[in-house]
Amino acid sequence: MIVIQPEDFDHGEQYKRLRARCDSDGAIVTFTGLVRDFCHHGRVSTITLEHYPGMAEKSLMQICAQARKRWELGEVTVIHRVGELSAHEQIVFVGVTSKHRQAAFEAAEFIMDYLKTLAPFWKKETTNHGPHWVDAKASDQVAFEKW
């Protein structure tokens, strides 16, 4: 399941959905990313996430398809929020089930690393020094390159 939405999501509910559909899988790994309240420009009050509708969903589907080629996975859920979000709000959910924990952990990490580098989302942070668009981080590229 891939969803891009402005509304918040319920982590517990998403876990329950994965568990209800995971059949004989022995592992469920979830990751929830939060809006940080800091950056190198100062304190962050809000971020605004924009995306290209249609292209973003297609990109997320391709990322999940690549994960399925690399690991034997059961269920995969990616929820990414867009719009204006305040510090400490949930921004992204990745949930993966697999027969074995290593595949589930690696696939979840792979999906997040690909989301950070390939998915067509643009982020503007509003800090105590004003708004600015966020550039790609070298550390995200390094994480992506290990795959």
Rank of each mutant, 00 (worst) to 15 (best):
D23M: 09
M61F: 11
Q141Y: 02
E84G: 11
L60G: 01
F110H: 03
C64F: 02
I47S: 04
T32S: 04
K146A: 14
V35M: 10
A20E: 10
V29T: 11
V142K: 03
A138N: 04
Q14I: 00
M1A: 11
I4A: 08
M61P: 06
I111S: 04
F144H: 15
R19L: 09
G26D: 05
A136G: 12
W122L: 00
F31A: 01
H11N: 09
E13V: 04
L73N: 10
E89Q: 12
V94H: 03
R81F: 03
H40E: 11
T32V: 07
I79K: 03
W133S: 05
T77H: 04
F105E: 14
W71Y: 15
H11P: 07
L73V: 12
A103T: 07
E125C: 00
A103Q: 11
A20G: 08
K116N: 02
Q14C: 10
K69I: 09
T127D: 03
D37T: 09
Q5H: 08
W133R: 02
N128P: 10
V142H: 02
T97F: 14
C39K: 06
I111R: 00
I91R: 01
A136I: 13
V142T: 06
M112K: 01
I47Y: 00
Q90A: 08
I79E: 04
R17Q: 05
Q102A: 13
M55D: 01
K146F: 09
R43P: 00
N128M: 07
W71T: 15
Y114L: 05
G83E: 01
D23H: 04
R19N: 04
P120L: 02
A27M: 03
V35K: 10
R68K: 15
R70K: 11
E106G: 10
D8M: 09
I79P: 06
G26E: 07
E72V: 13
R17F: 02
A108N: 03
Y52D: 05
Q141I: 08
T117A: 03
H129E: 14
A20T: 03
P120T: 06
